[in-house]
């Protein structure tokens, strides 16, 4: 079993900022590598298919790796599912980790499929003692298999369950303590969930153990009208909105300097626009922490 002090691997220098690595930006990044920037790559995009692990994507990632630090971010670990961890998936993830040597690897505190099927969607868990035990056991198993600690991210939620016995922040914190893993705190997800489910996002931040927070995500969301009201959707298709920046400042006040990353997955803009968002995060971090 891995024992550890406060955090995970060496962090980045305080002036560095993280950007989500997306295919439309490959040439801009390779042609003029941005300074003081690290990238987060979606692990599944570089795993290849069952019979092939090559191709342009992994080659580009290896090139970018020469100039920048990389962290890997998975979307299919399915840690909250009743299914056993998929050995096939973990083997592919492990060989990707060996090839890319990321600073760390993260995934989401949710489930993405059941009975061997993958819905490719980040689905909510009921926050019960039983589920807590189950998820902790799975994380411990996965971390042992990979030989490294992971970070787990809070996802945007659109519903909760009546039989939950604790709040999400309690569940996330307890998971991190008992499984000795890190927290990837997505500030936009906290904001989106707080509006959709009606809680105070500052209460969420107040209950997160600062020493467990290894990374922060910032992103944009959209507003969707339903027949009965408005829902915020975690679309990552626009700049980080002001209320999320404000919540970020609150997070930095509580947790100090934390490696921060901008996610932008749809309606992807020119690289310079993404980089400017990163710059804004860097400045806010500097004046706040």
């Amino acid at each position: 079993m891995m024992k550890g002090s406060q955090m995970f691997l060496e962090p980045f220098s305080k002036s560095e900022i993280g950007l989500g690595l997306r295919a439309p930006h490959y040439s801009a990044i390779l042609e003029s590598p941005p300074k003081q920037t690290w990238f987060e790559a979606i692990a599944e995009n570089y795993m290849g298919v069952e019979k092939g692990t090559g191709g342009r994507a992994i080659r580009v990632l290896e090139k970018i790796r020469c100039n920048h630090d990389i962290v890997l971010h998975g979307v299919s670990l399915n840690i909250g599912s009743v299914d056993e961890p998929s050995e096939n998936y973990l083997k592919r993830l492990k060989s990707l980790i060996a090839r890319i040597e990321p600073k760390w690897t993260s995934d989401h505190l949710c489930w993405t499929g059941v009975n061997g099927e993958n819905l490719h969607d980040l689905l909510p868990l009921p926050y019960t003692e039983e589920v807590l035990d189950h998820v902790v056991e799975k994380i411990l198993w996965v971390q042992d298999f990979l030989g490294r600690r992971m970070l787990f991210e809070n996802v945007s939620a659109y519903l909760t369950f009546k039989h939950s016995q604790m709040e999400e922040w309690e569940f996330l914190s307890e998971i991190s303590r008992r499984a000795d893993c890190g927290i990837l705190l997505d500030i936009n997800n906290i904001y989106v969930s707080s509006k959709n489910l009606g809680f105070n996002p500052l209460t969420y931040l107040d209950h997160i153990p600062p020493a467990r927070v290894g990374q922060i995500h910032l992103a944009g969301h959209s507003i969707q009208k339903t027949n009965h009201g408005i829902c915020l959707i975690d679309t990552h298709d626009r700049p980080v909105p002001e209320p999320v920046w404000a919540l970020y400042v609150e997070a930095v006040k509580r947790f100090g300097w934390i490696p921060t990353l901008i996610e932008w997955d749809a309606s992807i803009p020119e690289f310079s626009i993404l980089a400017a968002e990163g710059e804004k995060a860097r400045n806010l971090m500097e004046v706040t922490s």
Partner: peptide
């Protein structure tokens, strides 16, 4: 019945968000 009622949005509408994303 185990999905929390959180007005004004209906449970079906909440499930729809996941269905659409999927």
């Amino acid at each position: 019945g185990f999905i929390m009622d959180t007005p004004p949005i209906l449970k079906c509408e909440r499930l729809d968000i996941y269905a659409e994303a999927y």
